[in-house]
Nucleic acid binder design. Structure first.
Lengths: 228, 228
DNA sequence: TTTTTGATTTTTGTATACAATAATTAGGTG
DNA sequence: CACCTAATTATTGTATACAAAAATCAAAAA
C-alpha cells in the first residue's frame, strides 16, 4: 500500500523540495535532462507530481550546486557541458584529490584500506567480465572512498558536487574502453602508495590519474560536440 | 545594432530571491545573523519586505552554499561555526590556493601582477596607519586576485564560497593585530614568487600562509568559545 | 516575400491561502 | 512541586492565485 512505499522511499523525514532536488539531480547527471535544456515548471511539476513551490526551491538548490543555470524572468536550464568547464572542474578535483591523498595517508584506518583493496579487486572482476557499468560505478566508489578517508566533510561534500558534473559526461558520451588497462594499473599503484602511506607518491599518482581522465573526457566531449 | 545581452553570462535583471540571498549572505558573513541562530521566516520577511516564497528560495540557495542548515519541518538556522569545520574549510582552501598559485604563474598577465603589487602597497599603507578594517579587506582582495589569475571560474566560485565561511570568523572574533607583521612579510614573499613565476615556491608560501591563518583563526574561535 | 507591430498565450516571479508539523501553554494528576 | 497530557498557538511545508515578464502568433505595412 501507499504508506509502505513511502516508508521505503523516504525512511527519514524529508520534504518535497529535497526529494525533488534529488530526482532532478539524478535526471541531470544521467542525462535524462540534457545539457542546456530548459526546465519548464509546468512539465516538471506534472512529471514529479508536486506543485511549483517545492520544485522551484529544488532548482534553486541545484543552481547553487552548479547543475542548473538561472535566467532571471526566463526560468532555468540545465547547465551546459563544455570542454572548458569540465577541464576547470577536473583541475579543481585534482587539487582536492591531492589533498585527500595526503590526509588519507595520515588518517586512513587499516580496515578502510582493506575495504578499498576489496573494492579494487571487485573492479578488476568487472574489468575481466567486461561489465563497463559496474566498473565505472566501482571506479567512482574507489575515488570517493579515498576522499572520505581524509576525514574532512567539507572536502567530501565539495568533491561529490564536482564529481556530479563529470559523471554527466560519462552518461552523455560513453567513454572509450581502451583506457581501461592503463586505469587499472594506475589504481594498483595508487592502492600501493596508500598502503605504504607514501603521501607524496600518492599525490603524484592521483594527479597523473586525473590528468589522464581529463584527456579522455575532453575527447569524449569533443567527439560528441562534433557529431551533434 | 542589437544588444547581445544573451551572449553575456551576467544577468542584469534581478529577482527578489537573488537579492534576498545576497542580503542574507551578507548578514550571515557579518555576523548580524549569528551562528546557530534560527531563521524565522515571519521575522525575515518583515525585515526584508518581501514574502516567504522568495525568502525560502534564498535560504535554500544559502543551504547549498553551506551558510545555512536546513532542519526538515523545523525550518533553517545559520550554520554553526566550530573549530573543526573551519579547519576543514581552510585545508580545502589551501589546496585550492596551491592550484591557483600554480595556474597563476602560467596565466597571469603582467598588468595583473602590477595591479596585485599596487594593492599590496595599499595594504602596507593600511598597516602603517593601523586601519585594521581596510587592511583586512585588501588582504581578502589580494587572495581573490591570485585565485582569479588562475583563470578558472569553477575554482574562483568555490574559493569565494569557502572564503565566506572564514570571513564569518573575522567578524565574529576580531583577529589579533600581532599577526600583521608576519603576514606582511609572507605577502611580500608571495608577490616575489609570483613575479618570478616560481610555481613551486608560490605553492609552498601559500600553504605556509594558510597554515598560519589556521592557527590564528582557531585561536580566535577557541577564545570566543571560552568567553561565550 | 520579409518585417513589424500589437494582441494573445505562455511562463515565470511573487504573494497568499491552506495543511501539516512542531512548539507552547494551561490544566489536571501523582 | 514535578510531570504528564491536551488544547492552543506558532511555524513550517505545500498548493494555488495573481501579477509581470517573455514568447508566440497573426495581421498589416514595406
Amino acid at each position: 500500500m501507499q504508506n509502505d512505499i513511502e516508508a521505503l522511499e523516504a525512511p527519514l523525514a524529508r520534504t518535497l523540495n529535497e526529494t525533488a532536488a534529488e530526482k532532478l539531480r539524478e535526471m541531470i547527471v544521467h542525462g535524462t535532462l540534457s545539457p542546456g535544456a530548459r526546465l519548464n515548471e509546468r512539465e516538471l511539476t506534472e512529471m514529479l507530481g508536486l506543485s511549483r513551490t517545492p520544485l522551484r526551491e529544488a532548482t534553486r538548490m541545484l543552481a547553487s550546486e552548479g547543475l542548473v543555470e538561472l535566467l532571471p524572468n526566463r526560468g532555468a536550464r540545465v547547465a551546459a557541458l563544455n570542454v572548458s568547464t569540465i577541464r576547470q572542474t577536473l583541475q579543481v578535483m585534482g587539487a582536492l584529490e591531492a589533498l585527500a591523498g595526503e590526509l588519507a595517508c595520515i588518517h586512513a584506518r587499516d580496515e578502510q584500506i582493506t575495504e578499498l583493496r576489496a573494492t579494487h579487486f571487485e573492479m578488476l572482476a568487472d574489468h575481466a567480465r567486461g561489465d563497463l557499468d559496474s566498473y565505472f560505478h566501482r571506479n567512482q566508489r574507489i575515488h570517493l572512498m579515498i576522499v572520505d578517508m581524509a576525514d574532512n566533510a567539507v572536502l567530501s561534500q565539495l568533491y561529490r558536487n564536482l564529481n556530479d558534473q563529470v559523471r554527466r559526461v560519462r552518461y552523455m558520451a560513453n567513454l572509450s574502453r581502451q583506457r581501461w588497462d592503463t586505469a587499472i594499473q594506475e589504481h594498483e599503484d595508487i592502492l600501493a602508495a596508500l598502503s605504504a602511506r607514501d603521501a607524496e607518491k600518492l599525490k603524484a599518482l592521483l594527479a597523473d590519474h586525473l590528468a589522464h581522465k581529463l584527456t579522455v573526457v575532453s575527447q569524449a566531449l569533443a567527439s560528441k560536440a562534433a557529431e551533434g
